[in-house]
Write a protein that binds this DNA or RNA. Structure first.
Lengths: 355, 355
DNA sequence: ATTGTTGGAGAAAACGTTTACTCGAAGAGC
DNA sequence: GCTCTTCGAGTAAACGTTTTCTCCAACAAT
């Protein structure tokens, strides 16, 4: 009869009894309410320590209505860009005593919906979404529950949701400028998956920048790399088969850039001498691939920081700025060794080290 | 007076009222208890759907005592090996309706303890730990609460905790054999952080394999790469400065191998012609770096699967195997292009493409 | 017909907290 | 010295579920 499955974990009541105070006092002590007598508090802490008590967050959440959990939805944890963000997000969350419920959707609409549903059921206090493509109905549910929301990159223009807008145009313009100044004219673009809004935004930025420079983008010079290494591989294979091969290719993210570099290498095309490559995201590894990859950088730390604070501002309504704010994140070109001036087509094969 | 902060989310009571049944029936319906009348169940589901009800997991957990959350502790999410595991773990967790509380400790003892504490407070049903170095006291708390535990790689030999033992010796032996058959004698090892048990286990496996082959490992031929690119960089710089430079280097993980390849490149040392490099982990990217990295593979999917099932077996005591089981995961060498036969030291510089 | 069984639905008691609310003691003002 | 505040601790009522228990109806067996 006394033999339950588990020994039944320690209660706030056990602490109260042991410290000879009421449970309310224990609760107040734990929550650092100032009105509790220092002597009593000391007794409580002592009891907590001696007995090895851990408060039950679930019970806490149930009554307080705040779970101190933020959901974080990313498309693909396997793409090194996102772990960087997750890490930064976690670091700041810990500081503020928040927990993260992470989910990697693989760009799958259905999994994303499941994830959001689970997050609601777990009573998250808010969710940051890095991947767009969400059903109206789900969004309505979220909205109906007044769930604090922040969309990173490209979100829907809804009244109360915050957005972090990444200013692609800046970095892309710098990149095109850089390439153009090195006499590149035939510049290809390896885009992301077409259903991903942030990918199409990057593509658009590229097209605009090219137009600004008066450069043409012939048909077939924009091809999807699906934001994966394999995608990059396939994309460049396609590009390389053209009669008029591009002298430079910009990629919608770094891992697909790694893919095109690799395919170029396989085909005996030297980067950067025969082909300039520019990535996007500036993942940590970009600096260390061979040759080091020139990339368009956006700060993962800053992105995470903005997202977290947007959420926080929304849940603690007191602090500014209000929900529905737009935040902006700039991008910039960081030059490394994967680009070079365009060469005369008929030149002899290059020597060895590109740097 | 009626104006609460939020509209107060839907209740199980609202559903009961709307479907004209008792809350017990609603609960039973949701939990698929077979005894509920199909007609009533239909009414309940209809109400749930119409009203857009999401059950409150926190309340559920509170009474049932099961949170359906597993903690997952990894050392560094920034190292691509771990995202692979996280992804596999998440996939299988979702299948079983479990949630993951992920934490990346950065090999920091203190952060790890905090993480574990938070996990206990969140009432996780078990935790998988991929990084060892834990205070006795914390372990005792865990043990005291009968928390299901699985250590991945190198865990403490405790009665009721499961362990997944990775059989390094196999892959390492293959690697040394491979190198030896290509006439390498001076083989260096870039190890991981010395405080990481799994890193020292790999180092030990290397030493044993070398001894088996009758190969010497002179002082200074084992140097720490800290399992990071930067560490690999520094490690090889040190190695390259030796009068007797190694002709091959094995690394305790892939990212440090990427570091040594990069440093070699900087120094004008060709991989694989002048230097053979073998990594460890076989991350996805290993196949795509230049040259493709030969590595010692262990299946991330399998690792995650084993860990999850170990935990699951422990929480649902019915199913075998029991808690405290040891699982084994093999490793194997996967050959790519970063190794080659040792060359005569005085040979001329290599041509260009290694493959 | 009467009594047992069975099966399924509802009532009510947990689960471990926070948070009004209550209440007594101590200090201030007259 | 008496009432009026103020302050801090304890009591009790939530929070949204699951789950045990109770109860009633229906059906089987005598």
């Amino acid at each position: 009869m006394k033999n339950r499955k588990k020994e039944k974990a320690l209660d706030i009541r056990d602490i109260a009894k042991h410290a000879k105070v009421s449970i309310a006092t224990v609760s107040r002590t734990i929550n650092h309410v100032s009105t509790v007598d220092p002597d009593l508090a000391k007794r409580v802490w002592k009891a907590i320590d001696e007995l090895g008590y851990y408060p039950n967050t679930q019970a806490r959440t149930l009554v307080s209505g705040k779970s101190r959990i933020f959901g974080l939805v990313i498309p693909d944890i396997t793409n090194p860009f996102f772990p960087g963000i997750v890490q930064a997000f976690e670091e700041i969350a810990i500081q503020y005593d928040y927990e993260i419920l992470l989910t990697s959707t693989g760009n799958d609409q259905h999994r994303m919906e499941k994830a959001i549903r689970r997050m609601i059921e777990r009573q998250v206090d808010g969710v940051a979404i890095m991947t767009f493509g969400m059903e109206e109905e789900l969004l309505e549910h979220l909205h109906f529950r007044k769930m604090p929301l922040v969309f990173i990159d490209v979100g829907p223009p809804l009244p109360l949701v915050s957005n972090i807008r990444i200013q692609y145009q800046i970095g892309v313009r710098q990149a095109v400028q850089h390439l153009a100044s090195h006499h590149h004219r035939r510049i290809a673009f390896v885009s992301g998956p077409p259903e991903l809004k942030s990918a199409t935004a990057r593509t658009l930025a590229f097209q605009n920048a090219m137009a600004e420079k008066g450069l043409e983008v012939p048909d077939g010079m924009i091809v999807s790399g699906h934001h994966t290494v394999e995608g990059g591989l396939a994309a460049f294979e396609q590009l390389a088969a053209r009669t008029e091969r591009p002298t430079a290719v910009m990629c919608s993210n770094d891992v697909s850039a790694i893919g095109v570099m690799r395919k170029a290498y396989e085909l005996g095309i030297q980067v950067p001498d025969d082909l300039s490559v520019i990535g996007f995201d500036d993942i940590h590894l970009a600096e260390f691939v061979i040759p080091p990859l020139t990339s368009i950088r956006m700060s993962q730390t800053e992105l995470a920081r903005l997202a977290f604070h947007a959420l926080l501002a929304d849940v603690e309504r007191t602090s500014l700025p209000p929900a529905g704010t737009e935040y902006f994140l700039t991008t910039e070109l960081v030059l490394r060794k994967s680009t070079a001036p365009v060469r005369k087509p008929a030149a002899e094969p290059s020597k060895t080290h590109p740097f």
